[in-house]
Design a protein around this nucleic acid. Structure first.
Lengths: 227, 227
DNA sequence: ACAAAAGTGTTCGATATACACCCATGT
DNA sequence: ACATGGGTGTATATCGAACACTTTTGT
């Protein structure tokens, strides 16, 4: 708490939300093209000022909804970036968040009709500010969380097959996983359950559909899921 | 980055530094007694405003030095707390850090002669603001980091015996550890090395002294150190 | 001599890893 | 009929957990 009153400052405070989705068998993130300097024409993580009487989480949720139209999305505070020089216009401290949206969710363009686009993380366009750092940080955290907790299904629709879930993990972790070991572990972790339905319309046997168990504990502390 | 310019706000921005040390076989934290309302007489985590042209990390280091006189200390950003009602005087967003200082480091009272004291985490006094939350969060993070990375020696002087290190881990994790397993794991982790000297003046065999290997990688990602 | 504390290996159980075939279904 | 892909079990290696005695030194 403030006791030293020397040279305080009231920096602008923003939230930036790194929004991940799976599409075309890649991990993608939503970026906004800047129409004005600085960094005109380059791409930035969507974000905005924190409003009066608004918590940081609420600000992040609002931004996420403005950009994608989605609510009830997995969202987590990532890190706060406050280098004095990170915005050439003046001091702006940003609290970064990351969000995982289901790949099928039709994320509409932002209300303000700015130019927005999804970009794969392996092939990013020219990035504004220190946002490349933030994206790298978010990716590290996502991979880490995927190994230690069971949040992969946040990137899938509400019902999914085990093959789809495994594919999501493989895309993000960037390595193939053994099918039998994957299924055993994910089921033993007790975070998903079979719906009883099957995916039809495909060649071959019908795959059982699973859903997230909302009553499950999100954090799997005792053991690494995918060591 | 800011694109939505509706109702922005410039909250006061502070850093709070949860400072941990080991003393009297307990984990203690430094607290400052508030001399004025709100929460007059209650105890708060040391902190203060972020200055102009000062990064968040620099602000945290400055606060840490002001309170303890120490430099070159382990310091890590924890989380940012921004509930609009967390300070009754107005909007104050705080970036919380945590620091680990060697138990022997004579942490002098703060420059401003405020009333400060070390308190064991198991028996905290009346806490101001939302600082109890922050302390709990910091303790969780400390325990977690201790299990997955090798930072326990940050709470010990530069040279220490394995018995001392084990005692530190036991205090923080709150459970006894097997001596032989502890020694094997901590040595296999390759973060400490024998100095070649021995601790004398004690009853019984002389214990070998160890030091931190500064070239070692801090994060032990591959495996839990103490599962 | 005795008390205190340092140092040292092995066994056993649990967990992780590697690996291949059968069968249902749609075309 | 055949191509596609879902579903299933086991053997081996690695890792974690539990456990006791000997030796050194100061008093």
């Amino acid at each position: 708490m403030p006791r030293n009153r020397a040279a305080p400052e009231r920096p602008a405070l923003t939230v930036d939300v790194v929004i991940f989705r799976l599409a075309d068998e890649r991990l993608e993130t939503l970026l906004v093209r800047r129409g004005f300097p600085p960094f005109k024409g380059r791409w930035a993580i969507p974000g905005g000022f924190v409003h009066k009487n608004e918590s940081l989480d609420a600000a992040a949720r609002r931004e996420l909804k403005e950009e994608t139209g989605l609510e009830g999305i997995y969202l987590e505070q990532l890190y706060t970036f406050g280098d004095p020089k990170r915005d050439p216009r003046g001091r702006v401290v940003t609290v970064a968040y990351f969000a995982l949206i289901p790949g099928t969710a039709a994320a509409r363009a932002g209300d303000d009709a700015a130019e927005v686009g999804w970009y794969p993380l392996i092939k990013l366009p020219e990035i504004a500010f220190d946002h490349k750092n933030i994206l790298q940080y978010a990716l590290r955290r996502l991979r880490y969380k995927l190994e230690y907790s069971a949040i992969g299904f946040q990137l899938l629709p509400s019902e999914f097959t085990l093959a789809e879930l495994q594919a999501a993990y493989e895309i993000i972790l960037g390595e193939p996983l053994d099918k039998r070991n994957f299924r055993r572990r994910i089921l033993e972790a007790d975070v998903i359950e079979a719906t009883g339905d099957y995916r039809s319309g495909t060649v071959g046997p019908r795959a059982a559909l699973y859903r997230y168990r909302p009553d499950a504990v999100a954090e799997v502390k005792a053991r690494r899921l995918f060591p």
